[in-house]
Design a protein around this nucleic acid. Structure first.
Length: 252
DNA sequence: ATGGTTGTACGACAA
């Protein structure tokens, strides 16, 4: 089973990229974040014509998540249970017996800000939710834009980013706690040391300079052993790209 | 250089 996560930063703009990607890579599951579309404007027909089922939870202008899958999604859930939130950041579904959890974790804007505090409240609820899901589903993969670079190996310039948003010790501790639930970081399981980034800021010519962070992740339960994993960084070099590249993992 | 770009939507905010 091939599972991909991609923050597309507007599915309106990136629909051609997504359709081309589906045709080229034929993943079993493609989880999208930042679709920025209300549900009534979701391009369901184009995705179904490409041979995929889809479930989604979106809103106008901001956020929005979707799961595209070859097999029909079952037990679809939108939003974190017990966490009342207008922001559409989570959708989960069971695909081919595998529980797929697709998250767009809040960015946090700046360490110490109100949005930073919201990020931690959201992560609190997310951790509780994942613990429950792991109790119900032996085969589980949690993917998405976590907006956290787990270690300095996931940062182009650790000194420049030290203590900054997505790299603070408090955020990294929360990410470590997710792994402590029994999840494996699939990319790091396959590539323990290699610098691998998934996001490059649109500003400052960051892509051309190699100024990236690894903030998009695929976390797998013990029953899901990654056979291979990587980042399709060439998507960041495409015409009118998202600022994120797809991250993928294959499972036996 | 506390810089810069993109998306949404048409000013300002989020990332």
């Amino acid at each position: 089973m091939n599972i991909v996560s991609w923050n597309v930063n507007s599915l309106n703009v990136r629909l051609p990229h997504v359709l081309r990607y589906l045709e080229a890579k034929k993943p079993d599951v493609l989880a999208l974040q930042e679709t920025k579309l209300p549900d009534e404007k979701f391009p369901r027909q184009a995705i179904e014509e490409a041979g995929y089922h889809v479930c989604f939870s979106g809103q106008k202008t901001y956020n929005g998540v979707a799961i595209l899958s070859r097999a029909k999604p079952e037990d679809v859930l939108a939003g974190l249970p017990g966490f009342d939130d207008e922001q559409k950041r989570l959708v989960a579904a069971t695909v081919d017996g595998v529980r797929i959890v697709n998250a767009y974790v809040p960015n946090g804007q700046e360490v110490g800000s109100e949005k930073y505090r919201y990020k931690f409240r959201w992560l609190d609820a997310f951790e509780r939710f994942l613990a429950g899901e792991l109790g119900r589903h032996e085969r589980l993969v949690a993917v998405g834009d976590f907006n956290i670079a787990p270690t300095d190996a996931d940062v182009h310039d650790p000194k420049r980013w030290r203590g900054k948003i997505m790299c603070s010790e408090a955020e990294r501790e929360r990410f470590a706690r997710l792994l402590a639930l029994g999840l494996t970081d699939a990319v790091r399981a396959v590539h323990p040391d290699a610098p691998m980034f998934t996001w490059w800021d649109y500003r400052l010519n960051a892509w051309a300079r190699g100024w990236g962070l690894r903030i998009d992740h695929i976390l797998a339960s013990p029953a899901m052993q990654p056979a291979d994993a990587g980042v399709d960084a060439d998507e960041r070099a495409a015409e009118r790209p998202s600022d994120h590249a797809p991250v993928w993992a294959s499972f036996k």
